[in-house]
Design a protein around this nucleic acid. Structure first.
Lengths: 193, 193
DNA sequence: GCGGGTTGTGCAACTAGTTGCACAGTGGGG
DNA sequence: CCCCACTGTGCAACTAGTTGCACAACCCGC
């Protein structure tokens, strides 16, 4: 589980309250690790019990808690970063659907894929805007700032991957009005059988 | 959950036993949906109870069961394929580590990233070989064969994404002996502080 | 002061997946 | 025939994450 480590990274960058962390996970960190507030609060409590975090009173209300990383937490994060990482299993519903489109409504799927392409393009454009605004001079970056930029680059590349792949699929089935059109006609006949 | 749907797709392509499906999920389907045998057997049973699959005796032993999709299963798959798919949350431990490298052993992480790059390159080469062997003439593909090829294309692009991103990260920190070398020297100093 | 809406924190039921382990059927060798 | 190794099926404990809901503190308007 890396949520606790994602929290350690985020709190190492800047101490914060449960709700601030929730917002970070809805936004910037959420590109590479997403978490709900329920889970964040639960894991924060456990990390505090384990001695990785210390909590002080927050500012905005009596129940608010502000967390910071302890020396033990810092050590745990350091250890984890050096550990080998297993390659995560890929699981994509969209891919299952594309593979099984012959057994379903291909037209509906293609429409939906076009919609998803739009979403991925929007997200890519958003990341690219962030990149321009926050990292106008990447060649001058160093330290943790360089890391943050490079991870944002990953976000951009990931969205590009989705746009390319989904577009290739759609174009293969719809594509241009000439060659692909002939293919599309053939395949629809097969689908009916 | 899409395991049941991935199973419907796989069994629609070709009926099979639990162990055959397990092998398919270790190999070709595993690129876009991975599952353990324990999970597969559990879900197969449930799908049979729900009327989506029918089981007959297998060939290799008295306990072996061979599954095929029922009309109800076909209908369920068709419905699911036409449904909108929510964009899955991205969660990458490697990304968390890259973002938090300043708080850990960056040298160890960079070594590990180089290893991962090698793994992704190997997997990409494997997918590309499959592509050449099984789909020597992609322009002539149609129907379900075209889908299978296009999904394999996604596998190749996904590995390319990882190779590119991880390589960009490593090169930014190590890179060429000139410009990036100067940066690398600066950042190590920061890391010690 | 009161009521209503907002907000920070958190409980709990549930799901999907992981991991360790187990049983029994099968085949082959001694 | 017996024993051992392999193999197909499956149980169960556990984990991480999702979703619905809840409580209480806080603020603002009447």
């Amino acid at each position: 589980m890396a949520l606790e480590h994602a929290l350690l990274v985020s709190l190492s960058e800047r101490p914060g309250t449960g709700i601030e962390l929730t917002r970070r996970f809805d936004r910037s960190i959420g590109f590479f690790w997403r978490a709900t507030h329920q889970q964040i609060y639960k894991v924060l409590r456990r990390m505090e019990d384990d001695g990785w975090l210390e909590a002080t009173a927050g500012d905005s209300r009596s129940t608010e808690r502000r967390y910071a990383v302890t020396d033990a937490g810092r050590a745990a994060l350091e250890t984890w970063i050096a550990m080998p990482t297993r390659t995560a299993a890929m699981r994509s519903e969209v891919a299952v659907k594309m593979r099984g489109a012959s057994y379903g409504d291909r037209t509906a799927l293609l429409d939906h894929l076009r919609h998803l392409i739009g979403e991925h393009r929007t997200r890519q454009a958003h990341f690219e805007r962030l990149e321009r605004e926050q990292f106008p001079r990447p060649a001058e970056l160093a330290g943790q700032r360089l890391d943050t930029w490079l991870v944002l680059r990953g976000g951009i590349k990931q969205e590009q991957f989705w746009v390319e792949w989904l577009s290739e699929y759609v174009e293969a089935w719809v594509g241009s009005e000439t060659l692909a059109g002939a293919r599309s006609s053939t395949s629809e006949t097969e689908g009916e059988a």
